[in-house]
């Protein structure tokens, strides 16, 4: 029995009794729309992730929402590849990603991406091209919008990467499995404000140093908190090593983030000092 015949059977027992073909289709569309839109809505409240593509590198920054005095962050100070493993992840030696949305879903996607990248390396003896890795994840995400009964991944990602075919690249993918390439973009809370700021200040052929400054400036304006610090911010760059010509990703450690903010004069001011000058 085809699906069409099934939908037209008025005697079928269960949920679809006396439901016409058209209404079944409509119902599916409606389910798709609310579930995916629900996911997108969740992301628009998540911590902001911002990416800027420069001529000699890519810059990512992310706002951490989960903070607190009692949160144990001792593991992020040393070991690993940097970062706190909350917002910015190393997917492969040539790709880093910032995530916004449901953290548990994000971890699962990151794991999938890392496996996909290593499988590509195993088959072809080359680092996976950035767009191909993006596609791999989007194929997975799309699948969860199509098959009934499953909830889509509530995650948007920004991918910053390098490959010899297209040099530096920045991609964005959303829960529906759509992806697109960008010069500068932003996901998560206040992404509208950030995007219009980026639109104003972005220049083609921007250098990595200028991109770092731009990212920090936009971040400081869009983040909810008044002061920037390593407990609220994750930061990463992807460049090419001038000696080895291999892509080099750097996910900043908390101390390095604070040093960077200080350098750009955006660090937390010492309140006592301010009181004295006032």
């Amino acid at each position: 029995m085809s699906a069409f015949e099934f939908a037209n059977q008025s005697t079928v027992q269960g949920d679809y009794t006396k439901v016409s073909c058209c209404r079944v289709v409509l119902r599916f569309q409606w389910v798709f729309t609310i579930v995916v839109e629900y996911a997108m809505e969740a992301i628009s409240h998540a911590g902001t992730v911002l990416g800027v593509l420069a001529k000699d590198g890519v810059v990512l920054a992310a706002e951490k929402k989960v903070t607190g005095k009692l949160l144990d962050l001792s593991g992020t100070k040393e070991g690993g590849y940097g970062g706190s493993g909350e917002k910015i992840f190393l997917l492969n030696s040539n790709v880093i990603a910032g995530v916004a949305g449901i953290t548990a879903d994000a971890n699962s996607l990151v794991n999938y991406a890392r496996t996909a990248a290593q499988r590509h390396l195993y088959s072809y003896n080359e680092d996976i091209p950035v767009e191909l890795l993006t596609q791999r994840l989007c194929d997975l995400k799309q699948g969860y919008t199509q098959y009934g009964g499953l909830r889509p991944f509530g995650v948007s990602l920004l991918y910053a990467g390098y490959d010899p075919h297209c040099q530096f690249q920045l991609y964005h993918s959303d829960p529906s499995g759509n992806y697109s390439g960008w010069k500068a973009t932003c996901i998560g809370a206040n992404n509208g404000t950030a995007q219009s700021l980026l639109k104003q200040d972005y220049k083609d052929e921007i250098s990595v140093e200028d991109a770092v400054a731009l990212v920090l400036r936009v971040m400081s304006k869009t983040m909810d908190s008044t002061t920037l610090g390593s407990e609220k911010l994750e930061f990463a760059t992807l460049t090419v090593d001038p000696v080895t010509k291999k892509p080099k990703s750097k996910i900043y450690r908390p101390a390095e983030v604070d040093a960077l903010l200080k350098k750009h004069d955006l660090a937390k001011k010492d309140e006592d000092a301010e009181m004295k000058t006032a």
Binding site: G79, G80, Y81, G85, L90, R114, T115, Q118, R119, L121, Y122, N125
Partner: peptide, 15 residues
């Protein structure tokens, strides 16, 4: 190639 795959997966998961 197989050892590179397994060591890379070990490194990235164990950090």
């Amino acid at each position: 190639e197989q050892f590179r795959y397994r060591v890379n997966m070990y490194t990235i998961k164990e950090e």
